[in-house]
Structure formats: structure tokens, C-alpha cells
Amino acid sequence: MTATLTTPRRRGVLAKRSVLPWLFLAPGLLLALVFKFLPMGKGIWLSFFDVRPFLGDKWVGLDNYTRVLTDHRFQDAIGHTLLLGLGQSLGAILVGFLLALLLEGQARSLKIMRTAVFLPVVTATAVVGEMWRLLYYPTSDGLINHGLSFLGLGPAQFLDNPDTALWATMVMAVWMLAPYNMVIILAGLAGVDRTLYEAAAMDGVSLWQRLRYVTLPAIRPALGIVLTLAAIRGLRVFTEVYVLTGGGPAGSTEVWMTRAYTLGFTRNDIGGASAASVVLLCVTLLLTVTVNYFRKRGDVR
């Protein structure tokens, strides 16, 4: 008798308790579902079709994949993507780390500096791109070339020279991404035990030794996060290239996603573009899992 009385009441409470968090999550989940997961699923689905929205899609199996993977322009883009992704990720981590070391502290001037340094992150990439096009302007009217002219150099054709265009894009990407890493590393630095620094000072270590044996080990978790984010974001570069060079000159800055975009939207080959995107998704997934594996193994050790 007592059992039959208590059970529904307990279940009622439980149900309420378990429904409530989901209700709070619902708006976010709804948005993620509609704008992320459904389109992603649809993209994977379309990659197996010759997409003809009006005439009806035609199943082509793995044709889109073989076409993308054997296309020589996609193959050229792999090298650019790897170089740009790796260069901008590592560059941004290094610069972010240096910025964090420089700007750590509580003084008001540092707070203002940190805010100023963080601004590129909250600026739209398209705007940043247009701004850097002006900075890189290939005559002495461009700010960077103006600076170079004081040193008796230039004017350099940053974006119009196929040998430098990719590097110029990389510099802009580092400028844009580094502050974000800085914030994460700053949080890591704030957690470093001060007494370790004092002990190190007592032992009379050099600056380099202090960085290598105290600071770096202490911010390992922060670096882990930064590396994971880099693995996720590194290879999907698109906007930077699209607004700065459009993949040119002579395809020297063409990356995987700009190629996929051209395929999908100027050549109307949605199936091929989907296949290319799925390939990138798989590679990114693999890369992220690998980075996480090494991070966890390091944590255990």
C-alpha cells in the first residue's frame, strides 16, 4: 500500500527534475538542431547525389568523392590548406602566448591594453579582410609599404605576388586569431601557483628556465584547449582567403574551402561541394581526436 503511494510521487518528482534542465536547454538545442545538425546531415546525404534541386537528385554513390579527390586543383589546395592552417594556428598560439605573458596582471593600463588587443577577435572577418587589403596596398600609399619605404625597401606586392600571397594571408590570420588564444592562456597563467615563481627566483633560475620548467607545465591544460581549437579551426580557413585574395593570384592561395565554395556556388555542383566538405569534416574529426588522445595521454603521464 505504501509502495503504491510513494512510487508515483517519487516518479513525479523525478520526471519534473529531469524535464526541467531539458526545457532550459531546449532553445539552444532547437537552434543547434535546425541550424547545425540538420544541415550537416543533409550535406552528408547530398554528397552521394548529383544534386538537381528541380529535376530531382540522382544517386551517384561515391562519384562525387572520387571526382573531388582526383581533381588536381583540390590536390593543389591541400598543400596550401595545410601550410596556412598549420602556420596560422602555431603562429597564433605563439603570439597569443607572448601577448599573454606581456599583458598578465591587474593594473588598469593592462586591462585597457588587453581590451585593445582583443578587438580583432570581435571584428567581422570581412571587415578585417578589407582593412588588411588597404594595409597591404601595393604602393607607398599602403600603410605597410609606407613603413617599408622608410627603411628604403619596397613597395612589395604582398597579395599580387604568388610567392608572398599565402604568407600575407597567414599574417592577417595570426593577427586575428592570436588574441583569442591570449585570453585562454591568460586564464591559465592566472592559475599558476605564485610560490613556484618565488621558489624559482630563490634558486636563481634564468628567465628561459622559468618559462620552460614552471610556466609551461602549469598552463598545460590551457595549451591543450588552444591546440584542440586550432585543430578544429585550422583547416576550415575560408573567409580570410575569400575576402583578401579570392584564392588568387594564379590559385596560389586557393584552399580546400574556397575550392569547395567555387564548386558549389559558381559551378552549381552542390554534390561535389558537399563531398569536399564531408572530406574536410572527416579530416578535422580525425585531427581533433588525435590531438585529444595525445592530450589525455600526456595528462595521465
Partner: peptide, 13 residues
């Protein structure tokens, strides 16, 4: 029951 609640929420969505 949590799983049930989750399923219901998603279905509702």
C-alpha cells in the same frame, strides 16, 4: 526517465 524526458524534448522540438 531522464532519457525519456530527453526524447520527448527532442521530439517536441
Amino acid at each position: 526517465s531522464r532519457r525519456l524526458a530527453a526524447t520527448l524534448t527532442v521530439a517536441g522540438l
